[in-house]
Simulated scan of single mutants.
Amino acid sequence: MAITLNNKMDAIVKQYTLHTKIIPCSVDTSTFTPSPNKSNSNIKKIIFPSDRSRTVKNYPLFENVIKILRNKYNIQCSTTEIKNMSRTEVAALYNSSDLMIMTSISEGSPQVIKEAMACNLPIISTNVGDVSVLLKGVKNSAVSPSAKAEELAELAQQSLNNEIKGIEGREKIKQLKLDDYSIGESLFNIYHQLISPIK
């Protein structure tokens, strides 16, 4: 039995074994929980969900998106990268921010997306890993059909203007059963089947 993170990975592994199961990493919904104390500042706080020095996270694309938001859409915004923070500090950042923009070149099943969803933080992302599945139908969140700064910026301004309809991210996490307990139960069931005597 092989456990994979998303459909693309699963298709690759199925070339070698038909016994696969997609089980993404879970999110700690007790640490990552919404806060009612959102800021009403005119300056929008936007998160870059990694260390900008990591090439695969594509910070130059993020930077271009921010420039378009400022110059074309006249959106005042500040940015913060997730770097050298504890999980508690990251959760506090999600709850004090207005939007996350992921510009990665590739991902598996990114934890930052699930953590932000658990805090009801809107997300705009490139189409990597399982992000399109995670964000489908989520309020003020979307996946760009291409990795173009103009398209990401247009979606970001729609999000910041509360124009994208859907359910809260935390509700989607519950629907997908991506909390620690549900994922733990799925893993337990697989290992229990594997070690059970054949009858």
Rank of each mutant, 00 (worst) to 15 (best):
T4Q: 10
L5Y: 10
N6P: 01
N6T: 11
N6I: 07
N7W: 10
N7R: 15
K8G: 08
K8I: 15
M9F: 15
M9K: 07
A11C: 11
A11S: 15
I12Q: 14
Q15F: 11
Y16H: 14
T17F: 01
I23N: 02
C25S: 15
C25P: 13
S26C: 15
T31M: 13
F32W: 09
N37F: 15
K38Q: 05
N40D: 10
S41Q: 04
S41F: 00
K45L: 06
P49S: 03
S50Q: 06
R52Y: 10
S53K: 13
R54E: 13
T55Y: 02
V56E: 14
K57F: 09
K57L: 03
K57G: 05
Y59M: 08
Y59S: 10
Y59V: 02
F62K: 07
E63H: 11
N64C: 08
L69Y: 04
L69I: 12
N71P: 06
Q76T: 11
S78W: 06
T79Y: 08
T80P: 00
E81S: 14
S86H: 07
R87G: 00
T88F: 06
A91D: 01
Y94Q: 00
N95T: 07
D98I: 09
D98L: 02
M100Y: 02
T103W: 03
G108S: 14
P110C: 04
P110I: 08
Q111P: 01
Q111D: 08
K114C: 12
K114W: 06
K114V: 05
A118H: 09
N120W: 01
L121C: 00
L121Y: 00
P122D: 00
I123L: 06
S125V: 05
T126R: 07
N127S: 13
G129C: 02
G129K: 06
V131N: 07
V131F: 02
S132E: 12
S132V: 14
V133Y: 13
G137K: 09
G137M: 00
N140T: 04
S141R: 08
A142S: 11
S144R: 13
E150T: 05
E151K: 13
L152D: 10
A153R: 11
E154M: 14
E154Y: 15
E154P: 08
L155H: 11
A156E: 06
Q157W: 06
S159Q: 02
I164D: 00
I164Q: 01
K165V: 09
E168T: 12
R170D: 11
R170C: 03
K174W: 03
Q175S: 10
L176T: 11
L176C: 12
L176W: 09
L178A: 03
D179H: 01
S182C: 12
S186R: 14
F188E: 06
F188T: 13
N189D: 14
I190K: 06
Y191V: 09
Y191D: 01
H192Y: 14
Q193Y: 08
L194W: 08
I195A: 02
K199Q: 13
